[in-house]
Design a protein around this nucleic acid. Sequence first.
RNA 1: GGCGGCUUCGCCAAGUGGACUAAGGCCACGGUUUGCAAAACCGUUAUCCUGGGUUCGAAUCCCAGAGCCGCCUCCA
Length: 497
Amino acid sequence: MALKFYNSLTKKKEIFTPLHEGLVNMYVCGPTVYDHPHIGHAKSYVSFDVIVRYLRYLGYKVRYVQNITDVGHLTDNADTGEDKILKRAQRERLEPAELVEIYTRSYFEDMDALNNVRPDISPRATAHIPEQIELVEKLIEKGFAYVSNGSVYFNVNNFKEYGKLSGRIQEELEAGARIEINPEKRNPADFALWKKAEPGHIMRWKSPWGEGFPGWHLECSAMSMKYLGQTLDIHGGGLENIFPHHECEIAQSEAANRVPFVKYWIHNNMVTVNGQKMGKSLGNFITLKDAFKKYHPFTVRFFILNTHYRSPLDFSNEALDAADKGLERLLNTIKNLWERIDSAKDGSLPDVLSERLEHCKKAFIEAMDEDINTSSAIAALFDLSKEVNTLLNSGQEISKKCLEDVDALYQQLGGDILGIIPKRSDRRPKTLATTFEFSWQVEDKTTEDIMKVLVDTRNELRKAKQWQLSDFIRNKLSEIGIALDDKPDGTTWKKTK
RNA sequence: GGCGGCUUCGCCAAGUGGACUAAGGCCACGGUUUGCAAAACCGUUAUCCUGGGUUCGAAUCCCAGAGCCGCCUCCA
């Protein structure tokens, strides 16, 4: 068994072997923080989060760097248009730094909610201006860049391999070019490394070429080089960044260093909404904050992982509802398992499950090894869930150890790797047995006490076979969104949505 | 116009030429369990867009066609 990744550079699945044994240097293109994150961000960063988690599970020491773009990303293309940060800051009457802070926090807030592990380093572009200037100087020295009217451009003609990632060749680019001809460029395909700041452009830094600001592509090259070295094991990002962003990164980095920039390029596919492309310009993008009003972040995460990262994902209420139910099924098993662990006795009962556990684990790992096939991996979890439910319902006594082994496996596969199963230690009291009580709803003590009185009273009625009254209580509670479940070992209640 | 991708049960979605009479989830319908429910379990539902071809063997490879989508402007 060996982990394989689909490499966008070679367009093949390849066995993953890092440059340095046991170590993985990974860089993922982070957000431009000029607005709240949307579900497209969720797909991308959940996908890469699981890759990081899985690599760590396999024993690699991963250094995961994800940039925060807070300058240089223009509205039009890399060379013309307004700076997104600046434009938005002016609209909201904020300092650019203030705006960036607001949306950076918003970003981390939502990523935390999705249970993404934080990157080891989250470098800001504006905090790395000297590194970027240094890189530009190096490129000028080596003859790959030229100064033109206070701006610096990369000379694409001098870098023969330009196009090797995206499959674009320059003649095509010129032929299909819809970009306005920029007279400062020698070749229309050349891209900006450094832009001269016009008067009134307040995001500006001193440079050897006058005051200006860095081009968007530059930060990723400069910062990845600084923190991860000249060659990365993995560089990830969204499909739409292949051209021009990643193509330009390759050009800058390899022209400067003369070594391969990235060993494995990994790209995730895009999100559509009700079958339609989701885009800023189309105005149909759904922020995570809105999505979370309706769906638990774990549901969103589970929904994302139910589809392979290289497949497009269509976001619709129907699909999310289905995912919500599916996840609930999985979590129900865990919940029942935990309840059982509480009441189980130690003792040397026969080990009834270890073979099943091994089988499930093997299926899970094989799926993950095959280019992070989370969809199949989740299927393995459902299979396990079925086995466990059957066992729990069988009436036979099961040893605590055996139950804890099952729990440990769920924690490992569903928790540590996929991040869709909460930790047992985070659990709420037993009475709050709703699927999402785990990290979400905390009931006050009075509510819990009242519910206990109600449940106890009803159970007295049930003992006396007063079905009409006990059903009345259950129905009335149901009307106000509380469901009662009568189980052999007691009654639990949960809030319904 | 150039480049790339997708089309698998009612819906979502895995499928690495041969244990595929195709995983898993949702929905539906039967059944078991339950005082009745809920949860859970069991069962029922596809020959893989169309047409050719390669092969002993194809959902998986090749060709042609239809439909959908992405990138080539900004977006994860």
